[in-house]
Design a protein around this nucleic acid. Structure first.
Length: 623
DNA sequence: CTTAGGG
DNA sequence: CCCTAAG
């Protein structure tokens, strides 16, 4: 779901103001994007910096909106939402999430952007042109009863958006995006219908009345109902050059079945799209805040929007959309691109993508009663309680993220990827982009992904990992310092039959991570793992200080093994999944030596002195 | 809780 | 990666 944001003008200011905080901010300047019209949901942090919103967030908002629209009272359930709803203002709509509930523990993130949670502002950042869908959303916020269509207003609000987009989008909807439904409808083009007619249609379709007056919303809803398919739910249109590309957006819908959130991603590809490689991805991943919330109130979420759908079409299955992880990857690429020297084309994991990859490991799909249930048992200790898979707490560890897999079709996916990448790249192109890097980090750190219920049981895990590693490798090789990170893993450990916890999923260290580690060690000194963790690895939710330590140990081993006697050791060295570049190993060695010499003699107190700048800084931060 | 080390 | 001991 794309949302547009009135933010436009503000962005710059925000950008400027943006703190250097690593985690936090993602400035996105809408203007930057010239071509693709995409609405991006953005979260505004307390300081005014913006962070890309996660799918969850977006979805949540959408849900809320929809709920409101469709049914007025629905809001009540989700307390958090209320805050959101209250704000009519599109530009800055703040959604308050319940901190306590919502947050899964993510220490790093929390610390750095503690504010975020409290006031999470959902802003729509409009990268480009507006989309129809957005409007309805807003409308929902305002109020069920009177649905103002801020949508139009919102779009209008942004000069950038321009009416043009709307038109295009609308027309597109009629013609392109929802052709099916119109056909289904019996040739009726919803656009032509009056609100009243739409209401009737709505009623006919869903069997219930709707108070929503928004035509667009109604149309969309009806279309959805008619099609049953998820694709219609949200559509993003991307205007590239002359072409209008419509990209299907995933609908955030919870599956009736037990699955809280299955998202279907439908990449509707326009004819144009097919031709053009570029795809545009709207969704940004975002911090866990939202996801948690969602988890919390599954029921509330889908009362309306989902309810309709469900009632109408229980059969239709919604597939979770790939976005987060997917996006992360993309973002990674992006970061590299702009930071970098190499502009790498995104490696489309085209091959892999052809077949949907999904991971469901931690999740148990059971069709026992004929009712498919996805349950996560681990967090509950195998109690068998159904848990929204989202919020898993893994021991005391920071938190786990779930990876989402993409169910996209190859074609759409590739396109999407490219588009996203492009979009990102555009943003990055700007001077401010340095921030982008950070942003994505933050995002990655927090990003949770919901898993597609559909996933295929085994093997996807590997699949994904491999894919990820490849990606990383790709990125890393291009430039080491770029930080690439994957989305988190969805699961840490799963209770074994016995109750033993499965190991945390193996997370291969990427080059970028290694580089960061090395830098961190150089900066803060060996042994200050927690500091390094916090500072250098703030963005990586996984990788605990212990992990860092272990990795360092391994690096040391590797470095010493390698450089001293390259010849003999080769045999022992097999191929590491991620071969560490010699330079890095050298650096590691150097650092190790330096530290070894300095630290011991001077002892802890002096060490700081020696390191001076770094240590102090670090310390000051804490102290 | 953070480190360090062994497994 | 995990686990544990020690500060």
């Amino acid at each position: 779901m794309e949302t547009e944001v009135g933010v436009g003008g503000n962005d710059e200011d925000k950008l400027d103001d943006m703190p250097a905080v690593e985690v936090g901010s993602a400035p996105s300047s809408p203007r930057e994007m010239a071509d693709p019209v995409v609405y991006k949901l953005v979260r505004v942090v307390g300081d005014g910096s913006m962070v890309p919103a996660t799918d969850d967030e977006v979805m949540e908002v959408e849900d809320l909106l929809e709920d409101d629209k469709s049914e007025i009272h629905s809001v009540a359930d989700t307390g958090q939402n209320v805050g959101c709803a209250s704000n009519d203002e599109f530009p800055s709509t703040k959604t308050q999430f319940d901190g306590s509930e919502g947050q899964c523990e993510n220490p790093e993130v929390d610390t750095e952007k503690s504010n975020t949670q409290l006031d999470t502002t959902v802003e729509l950042e409009k990268l480009n042109a507006g989309t129809e869908e957005t409007v309805p959303l807003f409308a929902t916020n305002s109020n069920d009863g009177h649905i103002d269509q801020p949508g139009s207003g919102g779009e209008c609000s942004n000069p950038l958006d321009g009416p043009i987009e709307n038109e295009s989008s609308v027309s597109a909807l009629c013609t392109n995006s929802k052709p099916d439904f119109s056909k289904l409808e019996g040739e009726i083009c919803l656009d032509n219908l009056s609100v009243r007619e739409l209401h009737e249609t709505f009623k006919a379709t869903f069997g219930r009345e709707t108070s929503v007056k928004d035509k667009q919303w109604l149309k969309r809803r009806i279309a959805m109902g008619l099609t049953n398919s998820c694709d219609i739910s949200t559509t993003t249109f991307v205007i590239k050059d002359n072409k209008v590309v419509k990209k299907g957006k995933e609908e955030s819908v919870k599956n009736v079945e037990g699955e809280l959130a299955e998202v279907s991603v439908t990449g509707a590809v326009n004819e144009n799209c097919e031709g053009s490689p570029r795809g545009c991805n709207n969704l940004m991943e975002n911090p866990e805040d939202v996801s948690d919330d969602r988890l919390r109130n599954p029921g509330a979420e889908y009362d309306c929007s989902v309810g309709d759908l469900q009632t109408e079409q229980k059969a239709a299955k919604r597939v979770r959309k790939p976005t987060k992880r997917y996006i992360e990857e993309l973002s990674e690429v992006e970061s590299r691109e702009y930071s970098g020297k190499l502009v790498s084309s995104v490696k489309n994991s085209g091959d892999g993508q052809s077949s949907p990859v999904s991971r469901v490991r931690p999740v148990r799909d059971t069709w026992l009663d004929g009712r498919p249930v996805v349950t996560r048992q681990d967090s509950l200790g195998g109690s068998g309680v159904q848990v929204p898979y989202v919020c898993r707490v893994r021991r005391s560890r920071p938190r786990e993220n779930f990876m989402a897999l993409m169910e996209l079709q190859p074609s759409s996916m590739g396109m999407a990827t490219k588009l996203v990448k492009k979009a990102l790249g555009v943003r990055g192109a700007r001077p401010d982009n340095k921030i982008g890097n950070k942003v994505f980090k933050a995002r990655s750190a927090s990003g949770w992904i919901q898993k597609p219920p559909v996933a295929e049981p085994e093997k996807d895990e590997h699949y994904q990992e491999i894919k990820a590693s490849e990606l990383e490798k790709d990125a890393d090789l291009k430039h080491l310092d770029s930080s690439g990170d994957y989305s988190d893993e969805y699961t840490g450990s799963v209770p074994a039959a016995k109750g033993g916890m499965r190991r945390k999923h193996h997370r291969p260290w990427t080059l970028s991570e290694v580089v960061k580690l090395v830098e961190g060690v150089a900066r803060y000194g060996v042994g200050r793992w927690s500091e390094i963790k916090r500072l250098a690895f703030a963005s990586y939710s996984y990788r605990t200080s212990v992990d860092l330590k272990d990795k360092w140990r391994n690096l040391l081993r590797a470095s010493f093994a390698n450089s001293p006697a390259e010849k003999g050791m080769q045999s022992s060295r097999k191929h590491a999944s991620v071969p560490i570049p010699a330079p890095i190993l050298l650096r590691v060695r150097e650092l190790a030596e330096i530290q070894a010499q300095v630290a011991p003699n001077l002892s802890s107190g002096k060490l700081a002195a020696c390191d001076g700048r770094n240590v102090h800084e670090t310390r000051s931060g804490y102290l």
